[in-house]
Design a protein around this nucleic acid. Structure first.
Lengths: 134, 134
DNA sequence: ATAAATACGACTGATCCGGTCTTATATTAC
DNA sequence: GTAATATAAGACCGGATCAGTCGTATTTAT
């Protein structure tokens, strides 16, 4: 209930791992997976998404891997979630992309008042950056 | 992602409905279900949980139904979630009951720092009461 | 050429969740 | 005392989601 997905957790763990160590260092998906006892394949996919979104940069081939290229204080948790889930974190369908087709939409009486809660949740995830979890 | 369940939404809609109208009035599950286009059986189960937890009182038999018996400003959203889901709203397994057996638990490096986010989420749902959604 | 790494899509098994159905019980109206 | 109307509660089902796996292609250093 209300929980972040494993993928997001793995992203945060991996990014934290990179942020902890010297900038410019290259980490392989495998070494991170082993270190934290995580499914290698799943972590790899997560890192690929982070690559596409520009949070890390990947080097292919032997001696390849991933490097963090953003300052930890510039990486918001909300952004990570957005990248991995491909949608914003919302407390109800109606606040998401295309939320108008929630079955309740027309009769819904709590959408307006809960907007404030959604807004505060947004703020919470926006103000929390990678730096805070180092 | 991070969304409240339909059951919680239905609870909030129903409770709001009751809170809007005069105190002491008895509402049937059916009339609420019809009014908001909600599955009657599901709503009924939700109301039964709210009855067990003392938020509403039920009257069985003909002319029966449910009555709100708590002041709207005394009913926290966090409490409703807790009652309906039978667990606290958490952003990760480790913050829930028996969270120690998350597969990541020992190697997890983000539990401690994310505690603050979890705490803020708790505050958010605690400070939001039924009154705010009327 | 080979080894080691990322890239990416397809597949699977388990779990969860919204919704339904059925039966029992309580209360009122007649 | 029977019928009608309500709550109470448990079992069941189908679809969706998700964590995790597998297979294959591609890139690059040695």
């Amino acid at each position: 209930m209300l929980q972040l997905s494993k993928k997001v957790e793995y992203a945060l763990i991996a990014l934290r791992h990179m942020a902890m160590n010297s900038h410019g260092h290259v980490f392989t998906a495998k070494e991170i997976a082993v270190k934290y006892n995580i499914s290698y394949e799943l972590l790899a996919k997560v890192l690929q998404k982070l690559t596409k979104s520009g949070v890390v940069v990947s080097l292919q081939g032997m001696h390849g891997g991933y490097t963090l290229v953003k300052r930890p204080d510039q990486v918001q948790i909300s952004y990570i979630i957005n990248v991995i889930e491909e949608e914003k974190p919302t407390i109800a369908e109606c606040y998401a992309e295309g939320g108008e087709d929630c079955s309740l939409f027309d009769a819904c009486t709590i959408r307006k008042p809960l907007e404030k809660v959604q807004h505060n949740l947004n703020l919470l995830f926006e103000k929390t950056t990678l730096e805070q979890i180092i």
